[in-house]
Structures are given as structure tokens and as C-alpha cells.
Amino acid sequence: MNVKVLGSGCANCQRLAANVQLALEHAGMTAEVEKVEDVAAIMGYGVTATPALVVDERVLVSGRVPSPTQIAALLRGV
């Protein structure tokens, strides 16, 4: 599984990245978490509100920071 956190490095993006780590531990999964900060790359996913969570090239969340539990549920659903 490939997980990407899209965002320009603002506070919300860091919170999302931290919650993703917690969610992975919570769900007992391992995945490569990659931070994407390049605006053009972010736009390439059709995302206009950061932070966004992309799993296996699919945008699951944009414009908000879900809790670790919610992220874990999303990750299990993939």
C-alpha cells in the first residue's frame, strides 16, 4: 500500500501525517508514507483543499484532518 499526504507543509498537513502514522499503528499495517509538497503534483490529483490523503493513487480525504480512528477505517476499506 502506498500512502501520500498532500500539502504545503502547514500545521494541518503535519497533523494529518501524524494521524496517518497513528492509524497505521492502530490498524497494525505497514505502509510507505510519502509527503507531497509540490503544488503542481498536488493539483495533479484534482485536490484544491489541502491537506489531502491519497492511498494507492486514490484521493480519500481532502480539506480536513480526520482522526486516527477514521483514517484506520478508510485504510482498511482500501
Binding site: 500539502g7 502547514c10 494541518n12 503544488v39 498536488i42 485536490v47 484544491t48 483543499a49 489541502t50
Partner: peptide, 17 residues
């Protein structure tokens, strides 16, 4: 609109596009 000024750049591009 719920909006954080940290996404001003992608929002700007998205709007113009």
C-alpha cells in the same frame, strides 16, 4: 467555505483553471 489560507495556492490554481 471551510478554508485554510495554507491551501490558498491550490485553491487559486483550481479556481483559475
Amino acid at each position: 467555505t471551510p478554508f485554510c489560507s495554507c491551501s490558498a495556492v491550490p485553491a487559486f490554481i483550481g479556481f483559475v483553471a
